[in-house]
């Protein structure tokens, strides 16, 4: 069994004038490890290699990256899912500025998340216990609240690439709908009026890259469709 050939994007702003691809040979001992394990093996060869990681079980969203052309989380992507012809190409998430190696500046992504006011708004006085919500009402939040903000979806979205300052992007819109769909939230009209411009929601062209790459199996395109329906219902 020959070593896995990994080609990885390198850029250190202090020493490199331009980014380049570096080749690594990694001995996985024939095991089907996760891509994150491969990154750790590479870091043992070169401690200067920079990438983010935390939970290593697919819930913190730190290690979103582009693996053989597809965005995903390195920690829950086994080699058998991505490696072709014993080759693995690793690049940072596309469309965001690179800080160093695999580490991107997530500022724009977070800004779009903050813009949709991702918190419950309820203008009625809080009761002494919890606000009641039926299991059916709560079911509407399934498939929405689980987002881990890994940015795999938004950085796979051409509309987000072209207009990252104006288009909220699939991740932000999924969260926007998470609050629109919450029976406890009373700011529906206010939220909708912030979204009716031609960019925030309507720049979604239904390409569905977001759905194809979401490591949590969520469906932002469907949520965007629901927001459109709500906007239409509100305005007509």
């Amino acid at each position: 069994m020959s070593n896995l050939q990994v080609s990885i994007y390198r850029y250190n702003p202090e020493t490199d004038s331009a980014p380049y691809m570096q080749e690594f040979q990694v001995d996985t001992k024939g095991r089907d490890v996760m891509v994150l394990d491969v990154l750790h093996m590479m870091k043992e060869q070169d401690s200067a290699l920079a990438f983010r990681r935390s939970c290593r079980e697919g819930v913190c969203g730190s290690d979103g990256m582009n693996m053989n052309g597809k965005n995903g989380l390195a920690c829950i992507t086994p080699l058998s899912d991505v490696v072709k012809n014993n080759k693995l190409t690793l690049r940072p998430l596309p469309g965001l500025p690179v800080i160093r190696d695999m580490v991107v500046d997530m500022g724009l992504f977070y800004k779009q998340y903050e813009r949709i006011q991702p918190y419950l708004k309820n203008d009625t006085p809080a009761p002494a216990i919890e606000r009641l919500q039926s299991p059916e009402e709560r079911d509407k939040l399934d498939g929405l609240y689980e987002c881990i903000l890994c940015a795999c979806c938004s950085t796979a979205c051409p509309s987000f690439w072209w207009n990252p300052e104006k288009f909220v992007g699939p991740a932000g819109l999924l969260q926007s709908y998470r609050f629109l769909a919450d029976s406890r939230d009373t700011a529906t009209s206010e939220r909708l009026s912030d979204l009716e411009d031609p960019f925030s929601v309507f720049r979604c062209r239904g390409i569905m890259n977001c759905v194809a790459v979401c490591p949590k199996g969520l469906n932002p395109t469907r949520a965007i469709g629901k927001i459109r329906e709500m906007l239409l219902a509100e305005a007509t």
Binding site: E130, L132, D182
Partner: peptide, 20 residues
């Protein structure tokens, strides 16, 4: 403290009577 979290929007699973 738990009720505060719920008021902040934490999406707890629910019983049929609407409670946590």
């Amino acid at each position: 403290a738990v009720f505060e979290l719920e008021h902040m929007g934490l999406p707890f699973s629910r019983l049929d009577n609407g409670r946590i």
